[in-house]
Structures are given as C-alpha cells and as structure tokens.
Amino acid sequence: MIYTLLVLASPVSGHGARTAARFASAALDRGHRIDRIFFLDEGTATGSQLAVFPQDEADRLAPWVALAEQHAVELVLCIASALKHGVLDANEAVRHEKPAASAHPAFIISGLGQLIDAAASADRFITFGG
C-alpha cells in the first residue's frame, strides 16, 4: 500500500512527530511504500539541523535522516511554513539575505503542490498532529 504522511506536529512539543517517524519506519519494514512525507506548519521545524536537544532524550532528527538515506523517502518542508520557522536551505538563505542555511540536506524545501501530488497517488493519507 502507498502511504503519504503529513506532519503538522512540532518536533519539540508533544509526541506527534516522533510517532510519525516511527509509523513511517514500521510501514516500510512491513513492505508498504512511502514516497514522500510532507511537513507543514510547526512540523517544518523538524528539518532544522541547528536545533540542539538534551543528551538524555531521543534524537529528533536522526530517524528522519535514516528514512531519507536508507529508504529514499522524500522529506519535503512547506516553504511558507519553513521560512517562518527559520528553516532555510542555502538558496533560501541567499534569497532572503540570511546569514546561514539551517535545513538538513536530507530535507527539500518546496510548495504545497508536492503534498497534493503525493496524496493523489496514495492509498492512505495520514496526518500527525494538528
């Protein structure tokens, strides 16, 4: 089955984002397909490589990077939300004259069309957070 996931949950508040990463990993392990995961609103903070988390807590970023690197899942941050949350790739940092890029390279910054396209071809569409 093809799943498309929409992550609205913040990586630092509640457990929606963690649940989403674990769901994605479990679905792939069972032979399902996830081509793309879309992050919107507070969910876009997930893509920051500058966030620092307490050492005695689970790493918020690593599970996503693993999904992208090991399973070729596309991780797409909504551009409007990502900019507001200070998650910029090199292009956006230059465009908006900001001192640094903050997005982890495993994430792509793009528009809502990427979500609509992925949902149109998905058997199941699941929202985390909201």
Binding site: D41, E42, L112, I116
Partner: peptide
C-alpha cells in the same frame, strides 16, 4: 478545520492548503 482562527498558525497553513488544492483543481 477544527481550530479557532488566532490560537495557532495551523489554521492559516490549512487555508493555504485549501488554496493550493483549488489551484491544482483537486
């Protein structure tokens, strides 16, 4: 849409999603 308008940024993000879906003729 289940949330009040000014309590969070989610409502605005969702309206943007509706606008995009309209634009993509969904």
């Amino acid at each position: 849409m289940r949330h009040s308008p000014y309590g969070s940024s989610l409502t605005r993000a969702t309206i943007d999603l509706a606008l995009a879906m309209g634009a993509f003729e969904q």
